[in-house]
Nucleic acid binder design. Structure first.
Length: 885
RNA sequence: GGGCAAUUAGCGCAGCUGGUUCAGAGCAUCUGCCUUACAAGCAGAGGGUCGGGGGUUCGAAUCCCUCAUUGCCCACCA
């Protein structure tokens, strides 16, 4: 078989993915086996694959493939999220490019465009996952807005409404003026900002000429001012008690009110109260029964229509201005009018909309909410008690903190792309009362539209209101409780996701899980880190530091990329991505490829097994078992990069570096000798096991080679194989240990070669002082170190270069190559080091408290160390004596 | 402002309940090698007083206190 010396993954990968699909090898149906279920964190339907997905999906695929090979019925359910606000924004943008405004369209027309967009761009990301090798059961592909999922959403909304857990109310919400919709608290991101603190003069109505200074970061809201609040305890503002102030420019006369909410010593102690545009001010407004003047349009431009006519006249010039333009203008005008005391630089935090990245406007608005206390109560204990286990555990704190301070969840959005709220209003009554005053008890919430003249609520639901049902709705557990699938696959096993959506998604799935299934939605949550570039910066489009995963796959192969992303990704740590890691992955694939070429290139004959090969086979058998124990342990702790490192070293160092070299047939007269059948078959067996161990990490190359290892039937695949190994026996553990010693001896010889510039080809003789190696160990050492003989000597040869393994001394006769002087110096230095070491231990051993208090085992260890050091010193002294002869 | 985590070799990390698997592996670096599987390779080597300081202990990278730096989460100081 002529195989290239370089592995080229590209055709191989698409070939095997096709094969897996054709034979439906990812498919799962309920059966008698133990289920292992994973639901994908649904990516945005119109999204494209980025490095974060690569990390996340690779980990899931490793877990799924591993479970499958453990004999579990693995089911990985893929799907996408309709991503209400993000998708709607994209559609609006495209329409705009076509010269169409959303406001010119009816809801139905807009939705047509949105669906068209979804069909056009939807599912691209799922195709990309195939290139990564993800073993999802594609027949189960779901969408948060497909029929089954939508039914679940509507039914849950109605159910929670009936339980009194959903209500409609006028509240101060986070308003996105760009998209003109309410957002939940979680969708607001706070940024530090350098802004200004404006100190404005409010004249005292009762005492002309005197004024109070009121500081604000938002002078544009003065048109909504209805009071100035002071702390009743603040000395310097006592004189303002009971007075009235005139809002500058606006001319409105407002009372000074007193409330302990105002912090003494902050600013001037005078807080302007604008109930319509600040959550705290709203609270004050409620408490003191103040008027609320909303002075903004939904897109945050000034709208004076709500305020008194004469004040409107005073502010006419601001009508219709953008809020930030207005801020500048008012500041200028105040300065001009002499009503600005002064302006300071000020650092504060400003909330931005997660999706549109515009500053949030607190806005009083009629929205739908979920009462969260109930859900916090059912979702907190299981995580704290580790019924659901978080990896890493530190996120338990984060989780608890959020649940203990939970606020009601605003679930309505003023969007069209999403699940429409199933609330209906009597058309005639609505006309009479308007939406705000429409009586709550006349709202009909129902799965189906009521008969008669009703209009449906215009709002749609927060995307996360559908995602939180994902582990249930994927198995149709809402519409059809206790169906076979939900009973079999639920609860799912592992959830793999980023910590950034712990509140958005993880916490809420736990809530829905207990509410609707009475059980956890998943047993383990694996939080990945954030993928950063090698300088530690977040990957972002604007920085241009985010590589295209497909491009990486083209360069390194999917297997190489999977390894690259995993190699330095311990759970919960950020990973610093570097192309070099993919290169390392690619190199490893190449290593496997070449090992395979070697083995498959051997001629096989029914000859006798060499002693070295006999040992190698026994040893590697044990080695595999040992590694498997370690692997299982690491998998159980989700320490996947470490697991990969274990197999990596097992294949590269132990198998390729030691095993294959030990069994490799010799060349005689330039002719490759055949290998004996026993060793050959063992080697194939080992290769088979190694491929299985590697398969979850690098599925493509392992399938390729496994298929080539021997004749396979159509539909057979490594991914459906089981991997079961016993732990090494005591005898095998002894072999493992002895071979480690042989390796040290071989390394010792190689070091001498390197130091003395002796070619690897040159045969050497090894002397062992006071002992000799036996049988297969001797044969293996001879082969690996290229020795012609290993002999026992009573005393070290003065002409030999020596080294120690443990306490035993080895020598290689050098015939004049020894620099006695240098050797003596080296030995003396070593003796000095050992003397120091020995002295330290000696002191310890003479310390009675140590001998009394330390466990006997530890004391025994120290004694052995002491004795070993002594015998090493003795050996070195003998060496020196011999050299001096 | 509150909380959580981290700090160990040039880099990114592992070191569980204190004592031989305690100072580790990987990559990078350096020195030899195109040795008939692989130069995307082979052999060998160097490199850290475990962030600083204090304490507990016979014994501390590991436990406690403190300081420093970094990162993350939460919070209504206008």
């Amino acid at each position: 078989m002529a195989l290239a010396t370089k592995y080229s993954p590209n055709e191989v990968e698409s070939k095997w993915y096709q094969y897996w699909l054709e034979h439906k090898l990812f498919a799962s149906k309920p059966d008698g086996r133990e289920p292992y279920t994973v639901v994908i964190p649904p990516p945005n339907v119109t999204g494209v694959l980025h490095m974060g997905h690569v990390l996340n999906e690779t980990i899931q695929d490793i877990l799924v493939r591993h479970a499958r090979m453990e004999g579990k019925n693995a089911c990985w359910v893929p799907g996408t999220d309709h991503a209400s606000i993000a998708t709607e924004a994209k559609v609006i943008k495209r329409l705009k490019e076509q010269g169409i405004n959303k406001s010119d369209l009816t809801r139905e027309e807009f939705l047509k465009h949105a669906w068209a967009w979804t069909e056009e761009h939807g599912g691209i990301i799922l195709k990309q996952l195939r290139q990564l090798g993800c073993s999802c059961d594609w027949d189960r592909t779901a969408f948060t807005m497909d029929e089954e999922r939508s039914k679940a959403v509507i039914s849950v909304f109605c159910d929670l409404y009936r339980k009194g857990l959903i209500y409609r109310g006028l509240r101060m919400v986070n308003w996105d003026p760009e998209r003109q919709t309410a957002l939940s608290d979680e969708e607001v991101i706070y940024h530090d900002e350098h802004s200004k603190f404006y100190y404005m003069k409010y004249m005292v109505a009762e005492e002309p000429g005197k004024y109070a200074v009121v500081a604000t970061t938002r002078p544009e809201t003065i048109m909504g001012d209805v009071a100035v609040c002071i702390n009743p305890k603040e000395e310097k503002n006592q004189w303002l008690k009971g007075k009235h102030l005139i809002v500058p420019i606006v001319g409105r006369v407002v009372p000074v009110i007193e409330d302990r909410y105002v912090e003494i010593g902050f600013g001037t102690g005078c807080l302007k109260v604008t109930p319509a545009h600040d959550a705290n001010d709203y609270m004050l407004g409620q408490k003191y029964n103040l008027t609320t003047y909303d002075i903004f349009t939904p897109d945050a431009h000034i709208d004076l229509s709500g305020i008194e006519p004469e004040q409107q006249a005073n502010c006419r010039k601001y009508q219709g201005m953008d809020r930030f333009d207005c801020r500048k203008q008012i500041a200028e005008d105040l300065i001009e009018a002499g009503l600005m005391d002064h302006v300071e630089d000020y650092d504060n935090k400003v909330g931005y909309s997660e999706r549109t990245n515009v500053p949030i406007e607190p806005r009083l608005s009629l929205q739908w909410f979920i009462r969260m206390q109930h859900f916090a109560d059912i979702a907190l204990p299981p995580v704290m008690q580790d019924d659901i286990v978080f990896y890493p555990a530190k996120y338990k704190n984060t989780y608890r903190n959020w649940l203990e301070n939970i606020k009601d969840w605003c679930i309505s959005r003023q969007l069209w792309w999403g699940h429409r709220i199933p609330a209906y209003y009597d058309a005639d009554l609505l006309k009479e009362t308007g939406l705000e005053n429409y009586p709550n008890d006349k709202i009909i919430v129902s799965e189906t539209a009521p008969e008669g003249n009703y209009v449906q609520d215009e709002g749609a639901l927060d995307t996360w209101f559908s995602s939180w049902l994902w582990p249930i709705s994927l198995f149709n557990g809402i519409a059809e409780p206790n169906n076979e699938e939900i009973n079999y696959y639920y609860p799912t096993a592992d959830l793999v996701t980023g910590p950034d959506i712990i509140f958005f998604w993880v916490a809420r799935m736990i809530m829905a899980g207990y509410e609707y299934q009475g059980k956890m939605p998943f047993k383990h949550v694996y939080f990945t880190g954030i993928v950063r570039d090698k300088l530690g910066r977040k990957m972002s489009k604007s920085l241009g530091n985010s590589p295209d995963p497909l491009d990486l796959i083209a360069r390194y192969g999917a297997d190489g990329v999977r390894m690259g992303i995993l190699l330095s990704a311990p759970a919960g740590n950020d990973i610093l991505y570097d192309d070099a890691l993919c290169e390392q992955g690619r190199n490893f694939n190449n290593k496997i490829w070449n090992a395979f070429r070697l083995v498959k290139g051997w001629q096989v004959a029914d000859t006798e097994q060499t002693e070295a090969a006999e040992l190698a086979v026994a040893w590697f058998d044990a080695k595999l078992k040992e590694a498997n124990v370690e692997l299982s342990d690491l998998f159980s702790k989700y320490r996947l990069s470490e697991a990969l490192m274990v197999v990596y070293k097992l294949f590269w160092d132990e198998f390729s570096g030691w095993y294959l070299e030990m069994v490799k047939p010799a060349y005689v007269n330039g002719e490759a000798q055949p290998i004996d059948r026993t060793t050959y078959e063992a080697t194939l067996r080992f290769f088979d096991v190694l491929l299985k161990m590697l398969h979850p990490f690098i599925p493509f190359i392992t399938e390729e080679l496994w298929q080539a290892l021997e004749e396979r039937k159509p539909g057979e695949s490594i991914m459906r194989e089981n991997l079961k190994l016993d732990a090494p026996t005591e005898g095998e553990q002894a072999v493992l240990k002895n071979v480690e010693d042989i390796k040290l001896i071989v390394s010792g010889v190689r070091t001498v070669r390197a130091q003395k510039n002796i070619a690897p080809k040159e045969c050497l003789t090894l002397q062992v002082v006071g002992a000799n190696l036996n049988g297969t160990y001797r044969a293996a050492a001879m082969k690996m170190a290229n020795l012609e003989d290993i002999v026992e000597v009573k005393e070290k040869d003065s002409n030999a270069q020596t080294f120690l393994v443990g306490t035993r001394e080895y020598g290689i006769p050098m015939a004049g190559l020894i620099d006695a002087e240098a050797e003596i110096k080296k030995a003396e230095a070593e003796i000095e080091r050992l003397e120091g070491f020995k002295a330290g231990i000696g002191k310890k051993l003479q310390n009675e408290r140590f001998v009394q208090n330390a466990p006997a085992q530890v004391v025994e260890m120290e004694r052995k160390k002491f004795a070993d050091a002594e015998s090493k010193i003795q050996a070195l002294k003998e060496s020196i004596a011999a050299l001096k002869k």
